[in-house]
Computed example of a mutant assay.
Amino acid sequence: MQSGIQIGRVPRPGAKEVPYLRVANVKDGYVDSTDVRSVLADDVEASRYGLRPGDVLFTEGGDFDKLGRGCVWDGSIDPCLHQNHVFAVRPDPRVLLPEFLAALAASPHGRRYFVGASKQSTNLASINSSQLKKFPVPLPPLTEQRRIAEILRAWDDAIERVRLLLSRTQKRYDAAAERLAGSANGAHARLGDVTRELTERNAGRLDRTAVRGVSNTSGISMMRGQAVSIDVSRYLVLPPRAFAYNPMRINIGSIAMSRLDAEVLVSPDYVLFACEETRLIPAYLDHVLKTRRWRHDVNAGASGSVRTRTYYAELAAIRVHLPDLERQRAIATALDAVREELTLLGRELELLRTQKRGLMQKLLSGDVRVPLDEEPSGD
């Protein structure tokens, strides 16, 4: 097992640029080589920190989802080094297959070990080389390791196909949204001329179970009970198809339309507004909010200055592309169809990952044993 090259040190004489892998390149089950950087290293360092095909990469940590995350290096870049926040483990091929070790690290057994052994602070965790060396590795026969790796690879292939399809569909949606809803050409209007702010308080109409939050990933969603005040009388009432956002987080996309059929409550710190539907269709505006042009205008504002809070009066000054109502409906319908496809692909991806986790739990714990082929005799 080896640690990697330190980035930012003073290069030695004769050093040359060599590609290296950082934590961002090491994903759960694969290496992302779309953004591989280079570091100055001499021949000694290149030899010491060089990767070989079959090395298993482990991340030191950071966010909890990066803790002990590992995959097998395929040698697609040669030479290639790794930085000091990525460990490289070279299994003894007589007793341990790289694919089996990588699967074991990602299994519930591996996650329990790394979380339990890690040094933790708020939302962060890390492991060192000593803790990694102590990772307990069960050693079934190589034939069984190989069969387990083949079974899990079939799920990995399916997951990768859906992941790529999801990525391509997201790019298709983004491009269509920019072209149809984020256009700089044609009629435009100030958001304040086609929407109105909502300020109605709850005053006892709804209870705590009606409280929702706004996320930049899941839109209007349930709130954790401990985050909700006992007294919700001052909470704001959010009707169906109205919009809510956190003025401190709208710059990262925390704004969404309520797709619920009933009124809900949101924090009194939020800002709420609704469309004047004779001029602006909510479903159309919902897609406008996903465009680069919208994000730029929210971050920069009409004056071009960056703000840390964006209240309704400031949001109202933003100009949005405003075709006629028939065109708005057509755009919303087309983009809704692509977004529904994204939702279905996301569910399929999560189901495949759940199935794989279940298989890993059974196969890597020994609860289910795979049939063994006979090993060559060696005669």
Rank of each mutant, 00 (worst) to 15 (best):
R259C: 01
L260W: 05
D261L: 10
D261R: 15
E263L: 00
E263A: 12
V264N: 08
V264S: 08
V264H: 12
V266S: 08
P268S: 05
P268E: 01
P268V: 01
P268D: 02
D269S: 12
D269H: 08
F273I: 06
F273N: 08
A274L: 03
A274G: 14
C275N: 06
E276I: 13
E277A: 10
T278M: 08
R279V: 12
I281C: 03
I281L: 13
P282R: 10
A283M: 06
A283G: 03
A283K: 07
Y284Q: 02
L285A: 10
L285H: 11
L285V: 03
D286E: 13
D286C: 05
D286M: 06
L289W: 10
L289E: 03
L289R: 06
T291P: 07
R292T: 05
R293S: 14
R295C: 01
R295F: 12
R295W: 07
H296Y: 13
H296S: 10
D297A: 15
V298M: 07
V298A: 04
N299L: 06
N299M: 09
N299P: 00
A300D: 00
A302G: 01
A302F: 10
A302I: 14
V306W: 04
V306M: 10
V306D: 00
V306G: 03
R307V: 02
R307T: 09
T308H: 13
T310S: 12
T310E: 01
T310I: 13
Y312R: 11
